[in-house]
């Protein structure tokens, strides 16, 4: 039988989540490492989502398992999980990957419990070893330590990956091959859990994940005023402003969706410029893959300098004002 590597094709109405394409790219690499006859599949649930099948095939999905039903319009674990569990029991995938998004972070472990298998959470890398097993590198202690996680005896071997960890590769178009899931399994009785609504705020300016340059502010910013300067600077360079957790907690920054780190976003801009950031492992974990890392901190012993290409030991006010003045 063909081995199967699956990707959960998460989408929220407007389209497929970019993490799906990142995972399909990785799934293609893993399929090559596994060798033999290995097939990449995508699992797509929702209402009116059939048009997305083509995009999934374009990015390398040889099969798309589809459940398209009005009841699936809003994500509900009590509807989604049973369908996916049954499908996996029938098709026996070898590997099953989820985005560690808000939805994937709940659905992945829920499906795993239904299949009595293991999930490597928030992997930063994965590969196939000489025993043809999936080895996933999982961060702990805020990313200070990485540990290899294997799932030798149970199937599928599951893993979740945060958006932005893997890079979407070029398209690998496949013939469209859609397999419909058995919708008779969908519970039609009233459930004790009802999804009522979903709200998404539009992102202003360049989304953090897409920005070539990110100006990131930490607790050292000291004020909302300085955060606003950072936003201005980001606009000048066509980049994005981001922050650490204390800058969220102080209420200076735009909110948690701009936070970088283990509990926030993983970003890899061409250039990252940090202001007033000490370099806690929880934050570094989310920006370490940036092309060029520049840090401004008044403390010459700040740990962040060790993970920076360029170190500026100076009061950030001087640098911020100097940069802004340069363009005025």
């Amino acid at each position: 039988m063909k081995k199967k590597i699956w990707v959960f094709a998460e989408q929220v109405k407007c389209g497929l989540d970019p993490v799906v394409f990142e995972l399909l790219t990785k799934a293609g690499e893993l399929a090559a490492e596994l060798g033999g006859e290995t097939e990449v599949g995508a699992v797509l649930l929702g209402d009116g989502v059939e048009p997305f099948c083509g995009q999934l095939a374009e990015q390398g999905a040889e099969v798309v398992y589809l459940a398209d039903d009005p009841a699936l319009g809003l994500y509900n674990p009590m509807l989604y999980a049973p369908l996916i569990v049954e499908l996996a029991k029938k098709e026996q995938p070898e590997i099953f990957l989820f985005g560690a998004t808000a939805i994937g972070s709940q659905l992945g472990p829920t499906v795993a419990a239904g299949l009595a298998t293991g999930v490597a959470a928030h992997c930063v890398d994965m590969r196939i070893n000489s025993d043809k097993l999936l080895v996933a590198d999982v961060p702990s202690f805020g990313g200070k330590i990485l540990g290899e996680i294997l799932c030798p005896d149970n199937r599928p071997q599951m893993a979740s990956v945060k958006p932005g960890i893997f890079v979407q590769g070029p398209a690998r178009p496949q013939p469209l091959n859609v397999v419909k899931m058995d919708l008779s399994l969908l519970p039609r009785n009233e459930l004790p859990l009802k999804a009522l609504s979903l709200e998404k705020k539009e992102v202003e300016g360049v989304p953090l994940e897409k920005a070539d340059i990110v100006f990131c502010g930490g607790y050292g910013l000291g004020s909302k005023e300085n955060w606003d300067k950072l936003v201005k600077l980001a606009a000048i360079f066509g980049g994005a402003a981001a922050c650490t957790r204390p800058a969220v907690d102080e209420g200076w920054s735009g909110g948690e969706h701009l936070m970088v780190g283990t509990s926030g976003k993983s970003i890899r801009p061409k250039v990252y410029v940090g202001f007033g950031i000490s370099g806690a492992t929880h934050h570094i974990c989310g920006m370490k893959d940036s092309g060029l890392i520049i840090s401004v901190n008044k403390d010459e012993n700040a740990p962040v300098f060790e993970v920076s290409d360029v170190a500026v030991t100076m009061d950030l006010n001087k640098v911020l004002d100097g940069m802004l003045a340069r363009f005025n």
Binding site: V135, I145, E148, L150, D309
Partner: peptide, 20 residues
């Protein structure tokens, strides 16, 4: 536990830290 731990390591994130 279906998952088993393999090796542990600390990622090497050191960069050159050139001082301006």
């Amino acid at each position: 536990s279906p998952t088993k731990a393999g090796g542990v390591f600390t990622p090497d994130l050191k960069r050159k830290g050139e001082v301006l």
